[in-house]
């Protein structure tokens, strides 16, 4: 049986596969090919979407979406060195839109909601992109690198006067 790296490169064009550490393989895919990649990997047995994350690469002007997939291994099957895949794709910071992966992995729903709130990424086709954590609207999504949390605290909370009796 061929390894998952070979399978991925055989099935997709322009995809980068590289081993980053023991048991972690990085798969870099294009934004358009994300859903088909995820679908393919799910059929290959990577049915557990552990995490959807986002890294704000502000100097390169992109958001790097990170999907971590692993296998549900059972019994005495000890994980081979292909335990987890780190699937990555990029969206431009100026226009952060991406198609939702909820149809492939149900787990992605709250994660994408969170990323919408924290990074301002719009997932088209998502069933509910409503606020998840925050109480008040913050102009700039707070997890972005250019959001200065200390300045925000200074302006919004420290400026409120103490109550004088």
């Amino acid at each position: 049986m061929s390894s998952i790296e070979e399978k991925i490169t055989a099935n997709f064009d322009g995809i980068e596969v590289r081993k980053i550490e023991e048991g972690r393989i990085e798969v870099k895919t294009k934004k358009e090919a994300l859903l088909s990649t995820l679908n393919f990997l799910k059929d290959e047995g990577y049915g557990h979407l552990g995490l959807v994350s986002c890294v704000d690469r502000i100097e390169e002007g992109i958001f790097e979406l990170v999907y971590i997939l692993s296998r549900y291994l059972v019994g005495g099957e000890v994980a081979v060195d292909q335990a987890s895949l780190i699937v990555k794709t990029e969206v431009p910071r100026g226009n952060p839109t991406l198609v939702t992966s909820v149809k492939v992995f149900e787990t992605a729903e709250p994660y994408e909601r969170e990323l919408h709130e924290m990074f301002g990424i719009v997932f088209s086709g998502h069933p509910r992109l409503t606020p998840l954590f925050l109480e008040r609207d913050i102009d700039l999504p707070p997890m972005r690198k250019d959001f200065d949390t200390r300045k925000y605290v200074e302006e919004e909370f420290e400026s409120i006067p103490p109550v004088e009796d």
Partner: peptide, 25 residues
């Protein structure tokens, strides 16, 4: 549970012996 990202007791209560301590010690 497997479709929605369940782990831990949620999965083990369905008979699947999934434990990271065994899978990826």
């Amino acid at each position: 549970a497997m479709n929605t990202g369940g782990t831990g007791q949620v999965l083990r209560a369905t008979g699947l012996e999934y434990d990271i301590r065994k899978v990826e010690p």
